[in-house]
Design a protein around this nucleic acid. Sequence first.
RNA 1: GGCUGGUUGGCAGAGUGGUUAUGCAGCGGCCUGCAAAGCCGUGGACGGCGGUUCGAUUCCGCCAUCAGCCUCCA
Length: 459
Amino acid sequence: MLKIYNNLTNQKEIFVPIEPGKVRMYVCGITVYDYCHIGHSRAYIVFDMVTRYLRHAGYDVTYIRNITDIDDKIIQRANENNEDFHELTKRFIEAMHEDFNKLGILMPDIEPKATDNIPAILKMIETLIEKGFAYQADNGDVYFAVSKFDHYGELSGKRIEDLRAGERVDIDTNKRDPMDFVLWKTAKEGEPFWESSYGKGRPGWHIECSAMSTEMLGNHFDIHGGGQDLQFPHHENEIAQSECCTGEKFVNYWMHNGFVRVNEEKMSKSLGNFFTIRDVLKEYRAEEIRFFILSSHYRSQINYSDEQLDQSRSGLERLYSALLDVETGDVPQGTEYQQRFEGAMNDDFNTADAIAVLFDLARELNRTKAEKSTEVVALASLLRYLAGIIGLLEADAAEFLKSSVTDDGLSDESIDQKVAQRHQAKADKDWTLADQIRDELTGAGIILEDSADGTRWRR
RNA sequence: GGCUGGUUGGCAGAGUGGUUAUGCAGCGGCCUGCAAAGCCGUGGACGGCGGUUCGAUUCCGCCAUCAGCCUCCA
């Protein structure tokens, strides 16, 4: 029985889909004006893991992850580059797909872009105005009137009075209430725009997600996810817009992943303390990043550091080493390992605990390998199968262990050659030469392992 | 100031009202020409103060402390 921590109630709840056997899920995607960083990677690895597990659990999942391809930052960046904003977003969408693909993040079922959904957005704004939840201000912008929605603040646990009393609310004379937020923004000179009955302009950020999710998943769907920083105001605003527009409940389960920190501080664009995925991929294998992200529970905060990635590397090498030289075949059913693994995953997607099961399994596999038991194939198959549920251990073991991200200047062939030389030296009992070759390779980051079947190397 | 969520062994990180997490690192042993990998064994922990309880790291309260949100943000 799957339990999910629901931010609407701040407790774990048994997951019951609206339609039996089906899950409709929407996750807020990237605003594409720059390369994705490790913080972004966490959000999308997490929801990729959620999608994979839901499918494993037998649900027919429709997963939508949008792309915000029009907003102030995009316009600003495009101006700086002196390029059309479409060109800019196209480049970064391609880069994002490239990065995500390496990290084992599967494509969502639908990946809608805001600019492709302007009619749906305008339709929603129109309904909100008709129903009296939104108004056009003197400057042409259309705002949502927060005070008209009784449930405002329910998701984030905030009260409107507290928010109004807050020091950081901008005073904007065009708004009737400082809490109101923009649905349609009038275009300034030279800015991209779409025609509408409110004049030339572009959609606000919040309305995009409301419009695209309800358009594609229906007024009421199962899961809505995103980073913790989106809980307020973005998701709060989505609820307000959607429920006021449709008159129905919007989402049953709200899930938010925790942040990635750097030196105990949130990794973010504005703080400038971010590491892009492609930069990290110069030092670490993609799966090491995925493993690092999944080794903690998705709601906890994690600290990014080389030491962490190094530990993930060691852990992953242990798991792949266990799989080395073992055939895989039929996956044994109903094992205790699988029960434990699924028990962990059913407990609000506890990947940390689930990965511990993988290590237990690897230990038994190693033990069994030494005994040359017939159990070996079954255990290895099970290990791959369980890990595969969360998108891990999908590479060939030998290939993974021999792969390298940094160039050591040695080709696989030249290493094989040196290993062969050393093999001869060993046969001649020339330990000095054998050790000399090994030291040389060690210095280049190549680790040799002798066994009865010969010598194996890895990077 | 309001609201969230944390505080576990050297590091990372699960979990539990009384019993081994797990990984990395350490120590001892086995294996090995020596290593490495692997196996076996092993030390080491639950922020502070109260309360509930036969018993709390686990439940409750207070305090301290950290991070986050309240402005764009995964």
